[in-house]
Computed example of a mutant assay.
Amino acid sequence: MSVITQGIRDLVKKAISDNTIFSKSYCPYCIGAKDLFDDIHVDYKALELNDHVDGDAIQKALAEMTKQNTVPNIFVNQQHIGGSDALKSALASGKLEKILKEAGIKAKL
Rank of each mutant, 00 (worst) to 15 (best):
L62H: 01
A103Q: 13
E97I: 15
G55H: 06
I21W: 02
Q6P: 01
I105R: 12
S17I: 10
F75S: 14
G32T: 10
D35C: 07
T5W: 15
E102T: 00
I21M: 02
L109P: 00
A90F: 15
L100P: 01
I40V: 08
K95T: 15
L62V: 01
K101G: 03
G32W: 06
G82C: 05
S2Y: 05
N19D: 02
I58K: 03
L91C: 04
D85V: 12
K108V: 12
S25A: 08
C30N: 06
D43C: 09
G32E: 07
S17C: 00
I8E: 06
F22V: 03
S84V: 11
N50R: 08
S93D: 14
N69E: 10
A103N: 04
D39R: 14
Y26A: 10
L62N: 05
T70Y: 05
A61K: 00
A61W: 10
Y44V: 07
N77L: 02
S25N: 12
A103H: 12
D43W: 09
K98Y: 12
S23E: 03
L91H: 09
V3K: 07
I8N: 03
A61R: 09
E48F: 10
G104S: 13
I4S: 01
I8W: 12
D38N: 06
G83F: 05
V71E: 02
I40Q: 01
S17K: 14
K88Y: 15
S23G: 04
I4C: 03
M1C: 13
T66L: 06
G32I: 07
T5Y: 10
A90L: 11
E64K: 03
I105W: 14
Y29C: 05
